Computed example of a mutant assay.
Amino acid sequence: MAPNGRPSGRVGGPPYDRGVPQTRPHRVLLVDDDPLVRSGLRLILTSDGDIDVVGEAGDGDEAVAATQAHGPDVVLMDLRMPRMDGIAATGAVRALPGPPHVIALTTWDVDDAVLRSIQAGAVGFLLKSASPAEIKGAVWAVMAGDAVLSPRSTRQVLDHLARDAGDVERRAAAESMAVLSPREREVLVGVGRGHTNAEIGRRLFVSEATVKTQVAAALAKLGLRNRVEAAVLAERAGLLR
């Protein structure tokens, strides 16, 4: 449980510490072609007084319009929908000005659709079978700058995405690391292993805020959009071996 008594949790990991409450509820948009799934997610999320479900959409086309209309912080995006699927919708939503975080929703663990959604800009994924604490914890995690991936799932994602990398890509990844400071490289290793900012901070004996700043600096230097891309680059560069 979090200090304020509400459930907390990161997918596949230890409880997520929210820290100081934010000034307004986190705004969430639900995108799924099954009304029952949306209803269940709404019930789970609105049980947390610090999360506000601001809208729903039944497919990818509606998701883009709903994002523009409601301005959510986080979109929970089903991957398999009619018309525009969740992968295309993720790319379209992330291309909007000031885009929200996107968490992919799937019935499977790691498959091609999940990998393509991450490449399209999703910050991670949730199984539809996830517990209420995991679902709410995922919203809190992405708002704090963490990817929604357990260490086990991160390993699977990296194995899938790095497997096809050629020697040229591996050399380029290793060379790109030259722009990072030694501490930024250490932080990137933690990101690649699926650790939260708090976990990285404890291992490196620095504050969570410091880790968050260093992650942001590393992403900016490397021209990356999110922690998952950073994890893939760290794997290709050989930092995780």
Rank of each mutant, 00 (worst) to 15 (best):
L105T: 00
V28A: 14
P25R: 13
V74I: 12
D112R: 06
A89E: 04
T46G: 03
P99S: 15
D32N: 11
L29D: 02
A63E: 03
G40L: 02
V75Q: 14
P82N: 12
P25M: 11
T107C: 14
G98R: 05
H101F: 05
P100D: 05
L115T: 13
R24D: 12
P25A: 10
A92I: 06
R42N: 15
A113K: 12
P25W: 03
V28E: 03
T67L: 12
D78T: 00
G71W: 01
A66W: 06
L41V: 09
D34Y: 10
I44P: 05
D59E: 12
G91K: 05
G58Q: 05
T23L: 15
V114A: 07
R83Q: 12
V53N: 05
A69F: 01
L41E: 00
R24F: 10
A66E: 13
L76Q: 08
P35V: 07
D48N: 13
M81D: 10
V54R: 03
H26E: 06
A92K: 01
T67Q: 08
H26W: 14
I103D: 09
S117Q: 04
V93K: 09
D109T: 14
L29M: 10
R80W: 00
A65N: 02
V110D: 05
Q22F: 08
G49W: 02
L30W: 08
S39C: 11
L76N: 07
I103G: 08
L45F: 14
V102P: 04
V31C: 10
L45Q: 09
D78E: 01
D48H: 14
